[in-house]
Amino acid sequence: MSDIVKEAWKKYLLALQIHPLRTKAVTSGVLIGCSDIIAQKISGIKKLQLRRLLLLMLFGFAYSGPFGHFLHKLMDIIFKGKKGNKAVAKKVLLEQLTSSPWNNLFFMMYYGLVVEGRPWGLVKNKVRKDYPSIQLTAWKFWPIVGWINYQYMPLQFRVLFHSLAASCWAIFINLKARSIATKKA
């Protein structure tokens, strides 16, 4: 088994080197798909909702992976040559004040409009009601992830690490979105 894992990791590293954006996009799509399968099972859905799964994978592939790729490259440009705890804290703070609120807002709108197919008025009301608590919860979770990511991860692995953490976050936010929809139904 370990030979299979070693070979897969070797192939992943090669793909990451040759096609970094594509590899990060695919990785993000696959991981959000896995997290949605888990979220569906935890929330008691008997038959896997394939449309939902594919739309969430599309979100990871088309948005999350590429966004993370360019975000981390930009952060390295902004903080070029700066190291240490102070630089890491500034990166985390900048990320939490800019991309974190945007990503949560965008995901909630995507989930409501595209995945659930709800009209804009309902999605807007849901975002208005639930976004503050989701963002406050995000600020309890993501700064820790950001700190570890900027402090210990090489640039090429930051999107992978972020995507793994995002899988856990996606389970939470999927379940939150789903529970709200269930309460209204």
Results as ranks from 00 to 15, higher is better:
Val114Ile: 14
Lys41His: 12
Trp147Lys: 02
Ser133Gly: 13
Phe70Thr: 01
Arg52Ala: 08
Leu175Cys: 10
Asn125Tyr: 05
Leu58His: 00
Met1His: 14
Val114Phe: 09
Met57Gly: 12
Gly84Pro: 09
Trp169Phe: 04
Gly81His: 06
Phe79Gly: 02
Phe107Thr: 08
Val88Ser: 02
Lys176Ser: 14
Arg178Ile: 07
Leu21Phe: 06
Val123Phe: 07
Pro20Phe: 14
Met57Ala: 07
Val88Gly: 07
Thr182Trp: 04
Phe70Asn: 04
Pro66Val: 02
Phe79Pro: 02
Lys176Tyr: 14
Pro143Met: 08
Met108Gln: 11
Lys47Val: 15
Leu160Thr: 09
Leu56Phe: 06
Pro154Tyr: 08
Ile78Leu: 11
Lys6Val: 08
Trp120Phe: 06
Gly44Leu: 07
Met153Lys: 02
Lys91Met: 13
Gly112Met: 03
Met1Arg: 06
Lys82Val: 03
Gly65Asn: 04
Val92Trp: 03
Gln96Met: 00
Gln135Met: 15
Ile144Gly: 11
Ser43Ile: 12
Ala166Thr: 14
Met57Val: 13
Val123Glu: 01
Val114Ala: 14
Phe157Cys: 04
Phe172Asn: 05
Ile78Trp: 07
Ala62Met: 13
Lys83Tyr: 08
Ala25Ile: 08
Ile173Cys: 07
Phe79Arg: 02
Lys41Ile: 08
Ile77Lys: 13
Gln151Val: 00
Phe161Cys: 11
Leu136Thr: 07
Asn174Glu: 06
Ile18Asp: 10
Gln40Val: 11
Phe106Asp: 15
Leu55Arg: 00
Ile173Gly: 09
Ala25Gly: 10
Gly112Lys: 01
Gln151Thr: 07
Ala170Gly: 05
Met75Cys: 03
Arg52Pro: 02
Met153Leu: 11
Val26His: 10
Pro66Phe: 03
Leu58Ala: 13
Lys86Arg: 10
Ala165Cys: 13
Lys47His: 14
Leu164Val: 09
Thr27Asp: 15
Phe161Lys: 08
Thr27Tyr: 10
Val115Gln: 00
Ala87Glu: 13
Tyr152Met: 09
Asn149Cys: 11
Lys183Ser: 15
Arg51Gly: 05
Asp130Asn: 10
Gly146His: 03
Tyr63Thr: 02
Asn149Arg: 00
Leu164Glu: 03
Leu122Trp: 05
Val92Pro: 05
Gly44Val: 02
Trp102His: 12
Met108Val: 13
Lys83Ser: 14
Leu113Glu: 10
Leu14Lys: 09
Ile171Glu: 03
Ile37Ser: 00
Met57Asp: 03
Lys183Ala: 15
Phe70Glu: 00
Val92Thr: 13
Gly84Lys: 09
Pro132Arg: 09
Phe141Glu: 01
Lys41Trp: 03
Val26Thr: 15
Met153Asn: 02
Leu93Gly: 01
Ala170Phe: 11
Ile37Tyr: 00
Gln156Trp: 07
Ala62Phe: 06
Met57Arg: 01
Leu97Asp: 12
Asn149His: 01
Gln156Ile: 12
Gly146Ile: 13
Gly60Leu: 06
Met1Cys: 06
Phe172His: 04
Leu14Asn: 10
